[in-house]
């Protein structure tokens, strides 16, 4: 019986102070978005950990799969020219 009324799971993101992005803090159960936000406030910011909150239904998140890890992320590894350290600049040249 209890399973039928289990509230959905939400992911909580907390901005710890202004100027920083929201980061994932954890999750919780709530019947709806309003309550999720309030539960998140009570649970994840009770020690002044945040100044702003996002709650997202866990089911709404689309994620990459570990099976696709190679195809997704390995191709980026062989493009060192994307990084500034790839380039040799003569000594003494400034502001570069």
């Amino acid at each position: 019986m209890s399973n039928s009324t289990e509230w959905p799971l939400w992911e909580v993101f907390v901005r710890s102070r202004r100027g920083l992005s929201h980061t994932h803090a954890g999750s919780l159960h709530a019947p709806d978005a309003e309550m999720a936000l309030r539960n998140a406030r009570d649970l994840y910011t009770r020690r002044s950990e945040g100044v702003s909150l996002w709650v997202v239904p866990s089911a709404a998140i689309t994620a990459s799969s570990p099976d696709e890890k190679d195809a997704f992320f390995d191709p980026a590894a062989d493009k060192p020219y994307r990084h500034p350290t790839f380039y040799d600049i003569p000594e003494g040249v400034q502001h570069l």
Partner: peptide, 11 residues
Amino acid sequence: PVLEEEVALAN
């Protein structure tokens, strides 16, 4: 009634 509410009431 639920853990989340334990936290809320205590606050």
